[in-house]
Nucleic acid binder design. Sequence first.
RNA 1: GCGAAUGUAGCUCAGUUGGCAGAGCCCUGGAUUGUGGAUCCAGUUGUCGUGGGUUCGAGUCCCAUCGUUCGCCCCA
Length: 417
Amino acid sequence: MTITTVRGVRDILPEEMVVWHALEQSARQIFTAYGYREIRTPLFEKTELFARAVGATSDIVEKEMYTFSDRGGDSLSLRPEGTASVVRSFIENNLHRSLPWAVYYMGPMFRYERPQKGRYRQFHQMGCELFGAEGPLADAEMMAMILRLLRTLQIDDSLTLEINSLGCGTCRAPYREGLFAFLQARQEQLCDNCRQRLQRNPLRILDCKNEGCRAIARQAPAMKDALCVGCADHFSGLQALLDGMGLPYTVNPLMVRGLDYYTRTAFEVTTTALGAQNAVAAGGRYDGLVAEMGGQAVPAIGFAMGMERLALLLEGKRAGKSGQVGNYLVAVGDAATRQALLLAEEWRAAGVPLQMDWLGGSLKAQLRRADRAAASQVLILAERELAERAVLVKDMRDGGQRLLPWEEVAAVLGALR
RNA sequence: GCGAAUGUAGCUCAGUUGGCAGAGCCCUGGAUUGUGGAUCCAGUUGUCGUGGGUUCGAGUCCCAUCGUUCGCCCCA
């Protein structure tokens, strides 16, 4: 029996990396341009970190984490998301003394979920976290940055930006109680799922997809009417800034995020092109989390994007040429092959990018491989060229060729670099 | 965790009421003994996902199991 991958994980083969590189390069460039610097945190942490940051009763922590004991007996977990680790790092390194602090990350995350298109057990996210900025300026600019990235990648059609305010510690608790009372009175009309949610997290009933629940949700008291003055100002301030920038968005009063730590602004970029896995980017403000985790009270905001989903959107757009080599060296015969290895090293040292044909064989076979590797020029070294201390340079586009003495190769082809 | 579809060559797929396992693409060689792509010719492609069962006989029918996909749930 051959060994295969674990369920829900997969290889990203070289052909697909073209898309991933485009994704990563655009993101790095744009995040950097906005003032974010990269951070890399460990792929696993103490389980308690995620339990406290993400929320012990959240689905992620309750049933989706890869948790194990190490040999010392500590309970560790593979990271299911990126924010918890960044917050831990912020506190651990006393970075409240260097505010504002803005970082981006990209890398694998792990959740034990039923795999589907655009949803894997090891998946990749990239995201940003900004610490120290309290006003709606940070929120608006972050959304603009996300939309700029999506526009740069040319996948901004079929996407919508939705925003909502979830309130803060002072106004959410009373709202939650009022909502609970309202929903409890209509328990009979809720779906099975929502009846269970009622006790654990009544807010989540607001974005249930069931028609009956949606009807009730529309009549339920709205968070926006329950916001305290500070939260209401923040939310209207954000909308004014978005309007001012001309960014298209819709307010979705029923949007609730799955993670417990969000306060005030929550936002989501969704697509209609990926079926059930419609969230492409999502984030929000988490003004209380740093203090909750034992740090100074520092406001913060962040988001994450699902890279597999972005890659799926990109694949549909691009032809996807796999990497191309510039120069391809072909040698025929033992003596020529030995000489070719020496010359190739010499020319590379002089700055000529050069791939050798690794398999050898007939000139015909090697040229065929050069063509498949998308080489633009082939350097041919066989008996005749060996005798003349030259290579035959063949242009693979127009088929033209010329003889080039060895000592001129670096000067002529190195100029490309 | 629940519901449904699906699994045949490296890839995309066909395979009739149960009767010799197929096509296209790809790959290799030749037509062209030092020249890729286009064309033509020839050739290699297989534990039919896996394990049981029914049958003279199973890719086809039945059961189980694993993977994938779609929906629910959840989320990026």
